[in-house]
Design a protein around this nucleic acid. Structure first.
Length: 949
RNA sequence: GGGCGGGUAGCUCAGUUGGUAGAGCGGCGCCUUUACACGGCGCAUGUCGCAGGUUCGAGCCCUGUCCUGCCCACCA
């Protein structure tokens, strides 16, 4: 027999195979970006397009990426094989603040202050960094086997993207959808920049709640008590608020109180923001230093008093003795002075959520500043209408069920709707350098603002009078154009004309608002079309205890550990770096489970495990051990296929015609065909977990455990007609199995394909059409259009039950496989005898029989197994004490009686017979008869054996 | 506070329009049988969170309730 390695050597094969796919241009679309047709046939086909969620250039591959990109690759490979013009567009995101921070850190380490470098030099440094490290994650995707069209790789800051962003900004500005306004932002007083919410680390910290007395203007001997955690902002107070329904303070609304230390009168207003249940029910309103107060200020037309400088010292609007003082020093002094004036009523311990800059670790300050905004309501309305919603009396109601974007799982439709109907304007400006600069110019004298895709003429004419806006745009402001801009938008490129809108977006559910919804807005807002048809939202990856994997918890699994392996020390490192509270326990488990480290399992095993584990639930729990199961599957496939391939390669007789498929041949072919229908439906419906389960059963149970075992007698026999016959069936079935598995485990299937196809070609053994390609990646996906073979599947099920029954008896009575036994069979169905006749040698092989004898009745003293299709008798006298067999029979009798009781009980219930559908009643009657008969037989057998014993 | 999930075998999870509860892993027993010990064969295990209701019949539908995870809002 030809040589076939015991294991798939993925370390050697994966890079080699990937390189070959690249060399032969297997990933490219039918039409090149410049419009040149590369594959005329496919250029006529339906495009299937996925645009990758661009990973950050600072990013490294984690399990979430691994899952998401495996899903995308599965879809792309499936559609490519199915004849679509499949294209997967890769790229990366410039990730504004994250990248700037990484480079700033590097400079810090060298003792360089990036501010001194200046804007231009800093940006140049970031570009350098990006050139060196920015594509690392794409390299990792290649290791995973992702079949992206690398020729189309884009970056959110490349030139075309920049043009797209400017076009988009100007367009929205002209439509009145981009505006400039004041807003409270998270401000870092150390780095003196605004931070996005993601860049703020929120944590509960112990603090104090201060109750301050604000005297009434009309009677300074009385006061209102406000509770605050931030007394230092009191100089910016412009009102105190009470709830409109709060009877305690009703008559004070409309009067004024005196702001202590300032001796300034501020109004008492009624606003629902004041919660009568909290604190004293009276809240001070400081619009410049609190987001809620800002809203209250707007509602009540209050002035805004900003009392801080950009480094969080107090400014010139506070009493002179406080000016220039740090916020915390000011707090202490304020409290002292209030106490002295008997205006500090009490101080309580209080736990509150403090936001700190993830960079400087200093508490952030809420700071009022000028920002750019996108008006979201009109865009959200378009999105709602696109998904078939119309304004109804109570919010939005869906009138057209299948309109717009389809979410998978569909419950996310609700999440999407909820966000759309409670939309808030989007602050798009950031006070950093790395990003798309706001295309607006401010007049130095008048403050007039000009907006333009390029430098406006008036700016060019008098450059000294204007300066460009210093801010850059939020990273998502380029991301929301991604499905369009990657294809060349706003230009009408061949790519855009052919491949927009795209087909599927696959991403994590936590960015449904940040990204998915906004992409929908951009698509509708600029092109009147949604950017894709389907959105697949995959589960979050959690560890085996259900805790979401994250770097800070140290519980993540590095995909490269799976692909390349890791030593125990390497496994421990993330835990030691993160130092979670249960670090000791995790480390101990690692030491116990992986004393020698973790041996690589390869990209296929990783991909398989991920797809196999997907459920529709909130998260997917994965432990390192689970990937070993994936490896077992790959090895099983490898060995099962190898058995057939080596027989094919070793076959020397080409002089005879292969035998016609037998019944069991027809069965495995029918199973393959049925599975291909299930798999297609599953992939079309984004039901990945189920697809993998079906394929697992097909490979492990049907192909390896039954078909392959059954084929062995013919495979190793002298009859070359039979040999070629079974090789033809098993080889052709294997080809379809490899085709179906290829999207999930591309490497091992491609490798097996490269040996299967020449071997089959050599013997000219294909059932049906031969493959269309030497490369599996380019071959066709099984159509699943075979005839229904329920008859064959029924007959085969009898055979399986027959073999299993004998195996059970053998195992129970410890009859060794080496002991060939004789069984007696009484057929009860027309199919039974011919089937046993045809499969005689195969069945004997599986059940380790000497022979099967067809009989009319049980001989005395024999054990019996009763099946609807046959009765099986076995002379156990040589192996077992009859009392043991009696016990076994009693158990069976008990089980049967119990089920019969339930079944008869049902039929005794008049309303069941009356009301249940006729076919169900008949089914139950049949079952009852079957059970009665079986019980009778068992009882008779028992009585007879008892007599003998 | 609002919303969305999940609670089924020791563990991780399937369970199609209501009609006899399933898989993988783990466990136990046997087997170094020539594709595979990353293997083969067999066995065991469930008051389907709890309480009501609808129904001839409920893991599945309805109501309530407990536990748990996530998202949004808020935290003076």
């Amino acid at each position: 027999m030809a040589e076939f390695p015991k294991r798939f050597d993925f370390r050697e094969a994966e890079p080699r195979i990937y390189q070959r796919w690249m060399d032969e241009g297997c990933f490219g679309a039918a039409v090149a970006p410049d419009g040149t047709v590369r594959d005329p046939k496919r250029a006529q086909a339906r495009p299937f397009v996925i645009v990758i969620p661009p990973p950050n250039i600072t990013g490294r591959l984690h399990m979430g990426h691994a899952l998401n990109n495996t899903v995308q690759d599965v879809l792309i490979r499936y559609h490519r094989m199915d004849g679509d013009d499949a294209v997967w567009i890769p790229g990366t995101d410039h990730a504004g603040i994250a990248t700037q921070t990484v480079v700033k850190k590097q400079l810090d380490a060298k003792g360089v202050d990036y501010r001194e470098l200046g804007r231009e030099q800093m940006i140049a440094n970031i570009w350098e960094w990006r050139a060196e490290f920015g594509d690392a994650i794409l390299e990792q995707l290649r290791k995973m086997g992702c079949s992206c069209d690398w020729e189309r790789t884009r970056f959110t800051m490349d030139e075309g993207m920049n043009a797209a962003v400017r076009r988009c900004f100007v367009n929205l500005y002209d439509r009145g959808l981009v505006y400039r306004g004041k807003r409270i932002v998270n401000w870092c007083p150390v780095d003196r920049t605004a931070l996005s919410d993601d860049e703020v680390e929120k944590q509960d910290e112990k603090g104090k709640m201060f109750h301050l007395r604000y005297p009434l203007a009309q009677d300074r001997s009385r006061w209102m008590v406000v509770a605050t955690t931030r007394p230092e902002t009191m100089f910016g107070d412009v009102a105190v608020a009470v709830h409109p329904e709060d009877d305690r303070y009703k008559e004070l609304v409309g009067t004024a109180v005196i702001l202590p230390l300032m001796d300034k009168a501020i109004p008492v207003i009624a606003d629902p923001h004041a919660d009568p249940e909290k604190g004293t029910g009276v809240v001070k309103i400081t619009p410049a230093h609190d987001p809620n107060d800002f809203e209250v200020g707007l509602r009540n037309n209050l002035p805004i008093v900003d009392v801080m400088n950009d480094d969080a010292t107090l400014n010139e609007l506070v009493p002179g003795r406080y000016q220039g003082m740090d916020r915390y020093a000011a707090r202490r002094k304020i409290l002292e002075e209030l106490e002295a004036a008997e205006l500090l009523e009490k101080v309580e311990e209080h736990v509150l959520a403090i936001g700190r800059s993830y960079r400087s670790k200093v508490p952030i300050e809420f700071r009022l500043s000028d920002q750019w905004f996108v008006k979201m309501a009109p865009l959200a309305e378009m999105a709602l209408q696109a998904n078939g919603y119309e304004q109804a009396e109570e919010g939005w109601a869906r009138k057209t069920p299948d309109a717009g974007v389809a979410f998978h799982p569909d419950r996310f439709e609700k999440v999407y709707l909820h966000w759309l109907s409670n939309i808030r304007d989007w602050c798009i400006s950031r006070q950093i350098w790395w990003g798309h600069r706001v295309p607006a110019w401010h007049h130095l004298e008048t403050g007039e603002i000009l907006v333009g895709e390029g430098e406006p003429e008036r700016v060019r004419d008098a450059p000294e009078e204007w300066r460009q806006d210093e801010d850059v745009l939020d990273t998502w402001f380029s991301s929301w154009l991604w499905p369009m801009s990657t294809l060349g938008w706003p230009e009408r490129t061949p790519d855009f004309e052919r491949y927009y809108p795209t087909s599927v977006l696959s991403t994590a559910k936590d960015i449904i608002f940040f990204w998915v919804a906004r992409m929908n807005f951009a698509g509708l807002g600029f092109e009147d079309r949604l950017p894709y048809q389907d959105v697949y939202l995959h589960s979050t990856i959690a560890d085996d205890r259900g805790v979401t994997m994250s770097k800070s918890k140290g519980n993540g699994i590095d995909p490269l550990t799976l692909i390349e392996g890791a030593t125990l020390d390497q496994l421990k490192r993330p835990v030691q770096e993160a130092l979670p509270s249960n670090a000791k326990e995790i480390l101990r488990r690692l030491e116990k489970n992986f004393p020698e480290g973790f041996e690589a399992v390869g990209a296929d095993a990783m991909r398989w495990t991920l797809i196999f584990s997907i459920t529709e639930g909130e998260n997917v729990r994965l432990a390192l051990q689970r990937f070993l199961e994936g490896r077992s599957f790959v090895t099983k496939l490898w060995n099962g296929a190898g058995r057939i391939i080596s027989s094919l390669e070793a076959e020397s007789d080409r002089s005879v015609a292969p035998g016609e498929p037998t019944d069991e041949d027809a069965w495995i072919l029918a199973r393959v065909d049925r599975t291909s229908r299930t798999v297609r439906a599953g992939l079309d419906g984004f039901d990945f977990g189920n697809v993998a389960q079906e394929l697992y059963r097909l490979v492990w149970d049907d192909y390896c455990s039954w078909a392959l075992e059954l084929s062995k007698t013919r495979l190793t026999g002298e009859d070359s007609v039979e040999r070629l016959g079974v090789l033809r069936v098993m080889g052709s079935a294997l080809a379809d199995i490899l085709r179906m598995l290829h999207p999930i485990v591309p490497f091992v299937t491609e490798e097996l394909w490269s040996r299967l196809v020449p071997a089959m070609d050599r013997l000219d053994l294909w059932l049906g059409d031969p493959p269309t390609s030497k490369q599996l990646i380019r071959d066709r996906f099984p159509p699943g259009d075979g005839p229904d073979r329920a008859d064959v599947e029924h007959r085969f099920a009898i055979l399986q039950r027959f073999v299993s029954a004998i195996r059970q008896l053998r195992s129970q009575y410890r009859v060794k496989d080496s002991e060939r036994i004789v069984v007696h069979v009484k057929p009860l169905e027309a199919d039974t005898a011919p089937m046993l006749e045809r499969c005689r040698s195969a069945v004997s092989f599986l059940a380790k029989l000497d022979r099967v004898e067809l009989v009319e009745a049980r001989s005395k003293g024999m054990a019996a197994h009763y099946d609807p299709a046959f009765e099986l008798y076995l002379d156990l006298s040589r192996y077992v004490d009859l009392s043991e067999e009696l016990a076994r029979l009693d158990k069976d009798i008990g089980r049967t009686e119990k089920e019969l009781g339930a079944t008869s009980g049902k039929l005794a219930n008049a309303s069941f017979v009356e009301r249940a559908p006729a076919d169900k009643v008949q089914e139950t009657r049949n079952r009852e008869a079957e059970l009665k008969e079986k019980l009778e037989k068992l009882a008779a057998t028992r009585a007879e054996l008892a007599e003998v014993a």
